[in-house]
Design a binder for these strands. Structure first.
Lengths: 339, 339
DNA sequence: AAACTCTATGCAAAGGTTTGCATAGAGCAC
DNA sequence: GTGCTCTATGCAAACCTTTGCATAGAGTTT
């Protein structure tokens, strides 16, 4: 950023008027002579003057930038949420600074510090899978920066939240499998400290309990990651049991797809011999063979609503005492991978 | 951003020293008394002083922020590139401002203007599918902001570029199909003004020519978008021809998947009756039935290299006359959707 | 005692923009 | 001619931080 950008001071010098006059002319101040305004605007256009937002932000103590902290963006889930956020914020005066924590708590700390230093106006955050302590988010709030949590909850943190009823989605999914005659339903689950996958596990367990189905510990297998490759071994593990499952409820579509893959490799018929159901409803999930049954989430709406809530805060600056908590209902999407 | 952030002036007032002394103490200036330094640092720690980067940026004429303009992020392609960029830039002193143009030239103009106003230090850009005119990128350059173009080319724009040899990838793919005995190879193609899909079309055409295969205009069908749904009708159109193809080379995996879907619906056996080959190698492409043959691109490397080149510029500020042009080689990935 | 040197710290300007208050000068009334 | 009012513009401070140059005061030398 060299000094080749035109400034208000440059224009003032050229027209032999003061910078404050130039500033007023550019804002069409009523107390200014029409001739002065016209001369300033003509030169500003000719020299392609662009205001320096750093100076403005310093003066106004307002950077007009929103930080969005997400654990990753390669999944359609988070990238769709960000698109929802972008579509709302893009229509406002705010800019977005997207920050990737790579599922790392340490990285999240660094990002929060950077956003603080950059005098960010507000933050939208979905915490990393390692994050147990939310003090860094409280620090944002203490510094007058409103925080809206989306998708992954931060239990104990007082803030606006836009979540999904993961428990209910899981409960519905497992109940559906039970209703369809499945007797041995397994769960390929995610990190337990993560609210989303924790709630999904609980929904699975409660659905079994409610229907007097036995809870078999060997049928609940932890998956170390969220990618296809992470689900291969856990799925194999399930199928190699003495009492293998006749249905699998996976914590996300990628893992469900891995389970389908392994089942096919082992010659199992889907859904006749094994029903498989995921969570998320990725755009390509309806193109697998068989098409994947799953739980859909209104991801785009999560992004839109989160952004709207934050913008409302920034606009009103009312430090309201009461936080909003919106919980979107997921929907079961039955395709051909389940009976 | 309220005035509840501790400043250097606050610390100075509390310790009865001047702001310049506080600034020097925080930087461990050698000319300062040890006692003074210790007192300043202790209070800065106690009051949790965070430097205001807006003031620093204004003073240094350097915002330490890089803008990344991409047409969308919901595809794994762009999100993986951004992850590569993030992994490199994250290790530097720079921050990333990710901007989505939503395949809109108008939106891109607005984003470039915003980045200019924000005194961004450098820009990484993959243009929207509507962009024919690159003057807005030249304007960045004219303002001393280095630009690195990645993936989608900007013909005529003098800048560093990190591209993929789309032509070669397409050529290899079609030649492979020919070698495997396919006689009527169709192309489901993308926007012609877009370098990537334009090169893929050219590769397809030249591979046919080189092998003395007839070019049938009815076998080249334009797809209006990049999503699965965009490929359904064009694929149907192909299969409903009097001389339907026995192979399809699609401009990306999503469209290839759509073609597979339509072929199955029509009862065609893949690859016996119809070979299908895509481009990109999405993470889930090896999980379809049959698994999708495709052309892989080193997307993560594109991101990493683009970021490295830009950071090198920002570090050296040497306004080198010669731009770099790196062209990554794609690789054919043969799975079960082709003979 | 006076002059000189060195240490530790402060002043002030800079970066770019905004705006409350001040004021020069034109125009009008007496 | 003088005094008053109004218009159009400028001054200066603010926002936060940095740093070149200045300087007060302690210590040393003559």
């Amino acid at each position: 950023m060299k000094k080749n950008r035109v400034t208000i001071t440059d224009i003032a010098r050229e027209l032999n008027i003061s910078p404050s006059t130039v500033s007023r002319a550019l804002k069409d101040h009523p107390a200014l002579k029409r001739e002065t305004k016209d001369a300033v605007k003509a030169l500003a256009e000719k020299w392609d003057y662009q205001p320096n937002l750093l100076a403005l932000s310093l003066l106004n103590r307002k950077s007009n930038t929103i930080g969005v902290i997400v654990p990753e963006i390669t999944s359609h889930f988070f990238s769709a949420i960000i698109t929802g956020i972008q579509d709302v914020v893009g229509k406002s005066d705010y800019n977005i600074m997207i920050c990737l924590s790579n599922e790392s708590y340490e990285e999240e700390l660094i990002l929060v510090k950077k956003l603080l230093n950059m005098q960010i106006d507000g933050v939208l955050v979905s915490p990393s899978s390692e994050t147990d302590d939310f003090d860094h988010f409280r620090k944002l709030q203490k510094n007058g920066i409103p925080v809206v949590v989306f998708d992954r909850d931060c239990p104990g943190l007082e803030a606006d939240k836009v979540l999904v009823d993961d428990y209910s989605g899981a409960f519905q999914a497992v109940e559906y499998l039970i209703d369809r005659g499945c007797k041995n339903i397994a769960h390929l689950g995610g990190p337990l400290n993560l609210s989303t996958t924790g709630h999904r596990l609980n929904g699975y367990l409660d659905a079994l309990r409610k229907n007097n189905m036995p809870i078999r510990r060997e049928h609940i297998v932890h998956v170390p990651g969220f990618s296809h490759k992470d689900g291969i071994k856990p799925a194999k593990k399930l199928f190699q049991l003495d009492n293998p499952p006749d249905a699998i409820f996976a914590m996300n579509d990628n893992i469900a797809i891995s389970a389908m893959h392994v089942a096919k490799k082992m010659g199992l018929k889907i859904p006749e011999e094994i029903s498989i159901l995921g969570f998320d409803d990725e755009p390509h999930s309806s193109f697998f063979t068989p098409t994947l049954s799953t739980v859909w989430q209104p991801v785009y709406s999560i992004g839109m609503l989160s952004a709207r809530i934050l913008l409302s805060h920034l606009k009103n600056k009312d430090n309201q005492l009461k936080f909003r908590k919106e919980i979107f209902k997921p929907e079961l999407v039955i395709r051909n991978s389940s009976k």
